[in-house]
Amino acid sequence: MINVWIGIIFLIMTIAVYRVAKRIYRKYPNPFTLPIFLTSGFLIILLGFSDLSYRSYMLGGQWIDLFLGPIVVALALPLYRQLDLIKKYAQTIFLGIFAGSIIGIVTGIAGAKTLGFEDWIIKSVAAKSVTTPVALSITDTAGGNLSFAAVFVMIAGISGAMFGPVIVRLLRIQHPVARGLGIGTASHAIGTSKALELGELDGAVSALSMTISAVVVSFLVPLFLALL
């Protein structure tokens, strides 16, 4: 019974911290004030510097985890809403996303392998370019570590959001479809929020690229990991 109460307290705490984080982000929008970054950062510090264990935190966290799979299903709706845009640029979009997905997977896997990391780390970095719920599903199926996958996804998101717009400018890429696709394929939802600042079409293409690349990556990761 005591476990149920601990669970409820951690559940309420997570929601409360997240709401405060959202308010901070609204006031000071920045990749480092993203609610996921602030909320997890706060809880990591809290658990890291106290006697509270992650296991007791998960008495509440497990209820939130139940939604991870169904949220992947939810992504079908925004994708469906962009069907017209997808049809308009179908071939180009698919080829660009396919290329980007391969680069993201191969450089991640090959880099970690070259640096001499163990297999479970390599498996956890393979899907880092895609949106968190899908990356977690892929990593789970591949046998990697979910927490590491979530951190790598966040690093990909934040770095791509901060420097993606700079990179496309340096490369003199002017077409919104090309800019949005690059940012969305590499840094999912966090990048998409930044792509939206470049333009409406950039944001829309980034959003659809993040979902299509998530599907493409879920097919490709097992194939590339089999080559290890």
Binding site: Q91, T92, I93, L95, G96, I97, A99, G100, I103, G104, T107, G108, G111, A112, L115, F117, I121, V125, K128, S129, F152, I155, A156, S159, G160, F163, G164, I167, V168, L171, I173, Q174, H175, V177, A178, R179, L181, G182, I183, T185, A186, S187, G191
Partner: peptide, 23 residues
């Protein structure tokens, strides 16, 4: 792993947007 993920992300943005732009 942190700089590796960042580098991989930059390459993904750069190369995929270049390919798309060419297409």
């Amino acid at each position: 792993m942190i700089p590796l993920v960042i580098l991989s992300t930059f390459l993904t943005v750069g190369i995929s947007s270049c390919i798309t732009s060419l297409l």
